[in-house]
Simulated scan of single mutants.
Amino acid sequence: MTRGALDAHVVVERRDGFRLDAALTAEPGETIAVMGPSGAGKSTLLAAVAGLERMTDGHVRVDGVELSGRRPVPAEKRGVVLLGQDPRLFPHLSARDNVAFGLRAHGADRTHARREADEWLARVGLDGLGSRMPRELSGGQQQRAALARALATSPRVLLLDEPLTALDPETAGDMRAVLHAQLALSRTTTVIVTHDAVDAASLTTRLLVLEGGRSSQEGPVRDVLAAPATRFSAALAGVNRVVGRADGGRWRAGSGAQMELAAMDADGAPLAALFRPADVVVEPAGEAQSVVAGSWEARVVRLEQTPAGVRVHTTAPAVAVDVATDAVADQRLAPGTAVRLRVDAADVRFVPCAEGGLPPAP
């Protein structure tokens, strides 16, 4: 099949009140990432494009051909392949025959299909393992075989629904490298649902962020991560995002929070302050002799272990702070603890934002 231009506007309404209303487009050979919190509608979006989820409204077109409508094109005839966390290999077929199955279904004779299957297995790093049954392969090897089976039929569109989530970090890293190489070689139009910003940054060119069934931000991956429009997008970029307003050379957070920082000359403008968790200093509340510019009172709401220490989440406003593990013990940080946070103005970047949630201008 030819590589596919994807044009989809998916509307799915469910009895439980959930509604997905999102547009997804991709040029032939382009790789797009879809990210969002749990329950945002990411898997539903892919399933609808693949023809496995009934749509309430909208359209799905590949190379200008309508696949939805009153008589939707069946999933098996769309030229769209969906690969999820479960490789779904046929347990009674060898790795070679699993890959050859799709080729046979597309009309290839047995000899040609098995030869092509071996070539694809070699491409994904499974050279010489074609005779093994799925139970004899590791999780990462099964996922590689599933990818080979998906790409062997030259689909117009490949949909990957968190294919690396079930793998350990080392195996996921190896599989990410395989994906990067094979997607570049095959030039297959690909949509990847992922929870890992590394996947978006290393494998894709554009990022669609879904929140609550709608697109909250879309654009080149670099642009989205450089100017996140929501707290979720900011978390992907590894930064705090606090919405506020600039006035008189000062910026203050909204929602009644006492956070205040020096700001550019943008009186009355709604701005979001962006800064890294590692750039925030946490101190015991009440110890400072005077309120220092760029400092504010907060309260700890939860602690999370990280590879480098502990991430302390605070509220009023919601800010994450990275600290060493021993600092948690020294300061007796725990949910409910009052603290004073401080960030240097040089470590804060301001970006324009929408008016929603801002305090009224004085």
Rank of each mutant, 00 (worst) to 15 (best):
303 L>F: 03
207 L>V: 12
315 T>G: 09
187 R>D: 14
155 P>D: 00
60 V>I: 02
217 Q>L: 05
267 D>V: 03
64 G>M: 11
263 A>R: 01
212 G>R: 02
103 L>I: 10
247 D>Q: 12
275 F>M: 05
151 L>H: 04
244 G>N: 07
259 M>Y: 06
65 V>Q: 08
35 M>Y: 07
312 V>L: 11
83 L>R: 12
92 H>D: 07
64 G>D: 13
273 A>Q: 07
66 E>L: 00
31 T>V: 15
53 E>R: 10
263 A>C: 12
166 A>M: 15
83 L>I: 03
301 V>N: 00
121 L>T: 01
192 I>H: 06
88 R>G: 00
344 D>M: 07
118 D>G: 04
54 R>T: 12
179 L>T: 14
60 V>T: 05
194 T>P: 05
227 A>R: 13
20 L>E: 10
73 V>S: 04
296 W>L: 08
90 F>V: 06
61 R>A: 08
80 V>A: 06
96 R>D: 01
138 S>L: 03
298 A>V: 00
267 D>N: 10
328 V>K: 03
216 S>G: 11
297 E>K: 13
108 A>E: 11
44 T>Y: 02
37 P>Q: 02
290 S>L: 09
47 A>R: 15
313 H>I: 12
34 V>D: 08
116 E>Y: 02
132 R>M: 08
294 G>R: 14
329 A>S: 08
253 A>Y: 00
235 A>R: 11
350 F>V: 13
48 A>I: 02
8 A>F: 04
14 R>T: 13
303 L>P: 06
83 L>H: 00
270 P>L: 10
255 S>V: 10
225 L>A: 00
338 A>R: 14
321 V>E: 06
135 R>S: 09
223 D>E: 13
202 S>P: 05
325 T>C: 04
344 D>E: 12
94 S>K: 03
9 H>F: 03
361 A>T: 08
210 L>C: 02
182 Q>F: 01
64 G>P: 07
289 Q>T: 13
155 P>E: 01
222 R>L: 12
62 V>I: 15
261 L>C: 03
258 Q>E: 15
286 G>S: 04
38 S>W: 11
66 E>W: 02
219 G>C: 06
323 V>P: 01
355 E>W: 14
336 G>M: 01
36 G>E: 07
290 S>V: 09
65 V>F: 00
64 G>I: 09
43 S>I: 13
198 V>K: 12
211 E>F: 11
209 V>Q: 10
146 A>G: 15
240 N>A: 01
183 L>Y: 04
350 F>E: 12
7 D>R: 08
358 L>C: 02
84 G>L: 10
121 L>S: 01
33 A>T: 14
311 R>D: 11
210 L>V: 05
104 R>A: 05
27 E>A: 15
165 T>N: 15
193 V>C: 04
129 L>I: 09
119 E>G: 14
171 T>L: 14
107 G>P: 10
354 A>D: 15
136 E>I: 04
98 N>P: 05
56 T>W: 13
33 A>V: 03
352 P>G: 15
344 D>F: 09
117 A>G: 11
239 V>N: 07
22 A>V: 09
289 Q>L: 15
325 T>A: 14
353 C>T: 15
299 R>Q: 13
241 R>I: 06
299 R>K: 12
